[in-house]
Design a binder for these strands. Structure first.
Ligand SMILES: [Zn+2]
Ligand SMILES: [Zn+2]
Length: 609
DNA sequence: ACTCTCGGAGACTAAACTGA
DNA sequence: CAGTTTAGTCTCCGAGAGTG
């Protein structure tokens, strides 16, 4: 008997190492081995769920069986053969075709039956339908998909995929495998970065040593389980240790013993809060983007994505569609953080000025907005725009500025860069509280925690005690114009905050019962949610009344928390956590971002409307 | 007895790099 | 510029919680 179905995958696919040994898993492995031999036997373990048992059934099913199958429905193998990139003869091909074999070792065809089964790759459809996606369940390549057919769901359409980000710089790659005469001294992951070098200095020109001692001294690049972004931050050097109090992660490197090392590091990419900033060389080249590849970074209307070259880019920042991306998994908090960084950077420059450093320009008040603090510290070098924000600043060379043009209140961003010979150093800590986040304009209204005063906008007048700064500084609040989404979202309900309650969805069984009103609006504003969802996803259902899908998928919860209130579960963008208006995911609306260096973010996450 | 939720491992694959 | 490495994004497994 052929094992089929989602649960097969569980069998064929050795379970992810469970944190605790699960007897069922063991059995699954065994049966899996049998399957690989081609002698698929039905698992008999009572430990398996009923769903798993049900999956073995074939042929038409009674309603009971139907539901009993739960998600363990099985895609028709034939249909799966249609999978564009995978064709394999064996049953395994149905769900576990090897992906393009980066990992041949996982291929199981003809693997020895008796030994521990190498894990079979779990095949995935390229794009799941929206329903399956929301349910986190296996989809098929057919439309309607197997699951939707099973449950009679309408509107089985491909979900949308977010375009991959571009312009994300990476650290140097691991050297390509170089064959030597002598056999490798070790196998497995060739780690050129022993722990002792974890905080080493990047030496891009390092040559091969013996036994694969590859470019040994760069900041420790990604260990397989470790995110690169953290390990490659020169900024991980405690600012206190190098005499800087800026603490902004803006690349302030003081002169001194570390200078050379830092300079070396600075000659390459820099990492700021997990974002790679471009090497100075890139900046100096005037690529028009800082930190990003050219993709849209120059502010020219590159049709689609304008990925922020560096932190501080527009939000949302990633969709080629130009539509604000409510799904981005890394937007809201990060954006908030980036905004803050930008402002703090600007503030730092301001402070730098006040410290009597060599920056010879003065901030002046921005006439366009009483709340806009003009960071045109560089105005004397012909900054054309109203607001400039320091994007990068390293002490050994330049200040790079990203400019935000708010001249006509158009919220457009033009990116320019300034390289200033600056020998100045700064020792500034700036604490900023974010009081408001204008959801409509995607503006951030930063309010300085210190009371406004005539010192505002008047650098000539020293500000009274400004904690955390070495020099008296200005007080100000500012608004950072940010790039509006190229294509605004359809009007959503404004204010974009609609309280939603977590309401458990009725079971499918209930929903599909004769009396169930498919598509009926949920307890809260599901109708609007539907329209919103439709608008956002362009999936064609127009009204709640026309929706035929079970209510399951029309629940306000699934529909759209993300769009309705602009909050989402950051850990998983597609799992939008229902929340009440005052919450972000499960977190309270007032979020203290400790990791932001004391900056507080009060209010909603930014969300375009 | 099921169904639903969702954390997170793993898959996929495009962008970034590398070396020729 | 082809091949390799890396990582962004997605799929969906499977344990646990909730429902009827
Ligand atoms: Zn589907
Ligand atoms: Zn479907």
């Amino acid at each position: 008997m052929m094992t089929r179905g989602f649960s097969d995958t569980a069998a064929a696919y050795a379970p992810r190492q469970p944190s605790r040994l699960n007897p069922a898993s063991v059995r699954l492995s065994i049966s899996n081995a049998a399957q690989q031999r081609g002698t698929v036997s039905m698992p008999t373990s009572p430990l398996l769920s009923h769903q798993r048992d049900a999956m073995w059934q074939e042929g038409p099913r009674s309603a009971q069986a139907f539901f009993g199958l739960s998600e363990a429905s099985l895609p028709n193998p034939d249909q799966f053969h249609q999978d564009q990139h995978q064709q394999q003869p064996s049953w395994t091909a149905q769900h576990y075709q090897p992906a393009l074999p980066q990992t041949h070792e996982f291929e199981l065809e003809d693997s020895p039956p008796e030994q521990e089964v190498p894990r079979k790759k779990r095949a995935q459809v390229r794009i799941a339908c929206t329903h399956c996606q929301k349910a986190c369940k296996r989809c098929s390549n057919t439309r309607p998909c197997e699951r939707c057919l099973k449950y009679g769901l309408k509107d089985c359409v491909d979900s949308t995929r977010k375009p991959r980000k571009t312009g994300v710089k990476r650290g140097p790659y691991k050297r390509r495998d170089v064959r030597y005469d002598s056999p490798p001294l070790h196998t497995g992951y060739n780690d050129p970065y022993p722990p002792s070098s974890a905080s080493g200095t990047y030496q891009p020109t390092a040559t091969y040593g013996s036994e694969h001692s590859l470019t040994p001294l760069s900041p420790r690049p990604p260990q397989p389980p470790q995110p690169q972004s953290q390990s490659q931050q020169p900024l991980s050097i405690p600012t206190d240790d190098i005499g800087l109090g800026l603490g902004l992660g803006l690349g302030l490197y003081p002169p001194g013993p570390l200078q050379h090392a830092l300079s070396a590091a600075l000659s390459g990419p820099r990492w700021v809060h997990g974002q790679r900033l471009p090497p100075d060389s890139e900046i100096a080249m005037g690529t028009g983007t800082s930190g990003g590849s050219g993709t849209g970074g120059d502010g020219s209307a590159s049709p689609g994505v304008l990925y922020p070259p560096t932190p501080g880019g527009p939000f949302p920042i990633s969709l080629n569609t130009g539509i604000a991306d409510p799904f981005s998994r890394a937007v809201s908090p990060i954006r908030a953080k980036l905004e803050l960084d930008l402002h703090r950077a600007a503030d730092s420059i301001y402070q730098l000025h006040h410290s009597g450093d060599s920056i010879h320009s003065a901030p002046h008040h921005d006439a366009h907005s009483p709340h806009t603090h003009n960071h045109t510290l560089l105005s004397n070098i012909n900054s054309p725009n109203d607001i400039t924000t320091i994007e990068q600043w390293d002490n050994h060379s330049d200040i790079s500025v990203e400019q935000w043009d708010n001249t006509n209140n158009n919220n457009s961003r033009t990116v320019e860069q300034w390289n200033i010979n600056n020998s100045g150093n700064a020792n500034v800590n700036v604490n900023v509280n974010v009081d408001q986040w204008d959801n409509n304009n995607i503006n951030v209204n930063f309010t300085d925690p210190f009371p406004a005063s005539p010192h505002d906008h008047n650098p000539a007048v020293p500000s009274p005690s400004r904690p955390g700064t070495t020099a008296p500084g200005p007080l100000y609040s500012s608004t950072t114009p940010t790039t509006a989404p190229p294509i605004p979202l359809p009007p959503v309900h404004s204010p974009a905050m609609i309280a939603l309650k977590r309401i458990r969805k009725p079971s499918l069984k209930t929903l599909m019962a004769p009396g169930s009103r498919a598509g009926s609006p949920g307890p809260s504003s599901s109708t609007s949610a539907i329209s919103l969802s439709s608008a956002v996803f362009g999936q064609g259902h127009e009204t709640g009344e026309q929706l035929v899908s079970p209510m399951l998928f029309n629940q306000p919860m699934s529909l759209d928390d993300e769009a309705e209130n602009g909050s989402w579960d950051d850990s998983s963008a597609l799992r939008l956590t229902p929340s009440t208006g005052g919450q972000i995911g499960d977190a309270p609306a007032v979020v203290t971002m400790e990791e932001m260096g004391g900056v507080q973010f009060d209010g909603m996450m930014p969300f375009p409307s």
